[in-house]
Amino acid sequence: MSAMSLRSLNLPGVGTKYEFQTDKGDTVAIFFTKTGTIQMYTLQKGCHTPSAAEMTPVEARRLGNILTGAIIEADQESVEIAFSALADLRVTIHSFLIPKTVSGKTIEDLQIRAKTGATVIAVCRNDMNIVNPAPSFVFEAGDTALVIGESDQIKMFERQITVD
């Protein structure tokens, strides 16, 4: 696979431009303008006029979430929430299917907080929700755990707990 070449450029008075070409030859360009809006242009290979969409920062972030695939994973979904007032704090909430390897162990046994930094805030078992499970809570195969943390902590959880 060829590496995607991302070109970034600062246009005086306008803002910052990011542009890259896809493997198939289409071009995507994003401009963060000084007016605070974000413009996204796409230019199909062989065409001369790009089409453009102008977005507010919130809309752009939503588009980003869609593009990273965060929202639309069916039984394992994840939402990132950014709190711009709290020094741009970003919290991710992710749901995981509990594998057989973890079945029968408690949250305490797994040392989830110590090992990953993430916290299990709810478990869904047979369409019943157990909110804020105690450390002595015993997982069963087929449970869905809702985990909260920063994206790194979520990744750590995925690696350490659900994949063995």
């Binding site: 246009l11 306008v14 413009q39 242009y41 790009p50 453009a52």
Partner: peptide
């Protein structure tokens, strides 16, 4: 010039960079 380039969604045009450099 800059406002109209943004409003008319012309930032990706290859001429835009040239225009900006000329104004600089």
């Amino acid at each position: 010039v800059v406002t109209s380039l943004i409003e008319n969604r012309k930032l990706m045009f290859k001429e835009t960079e040239t225009i900006i450099w000329v104004t600089v």
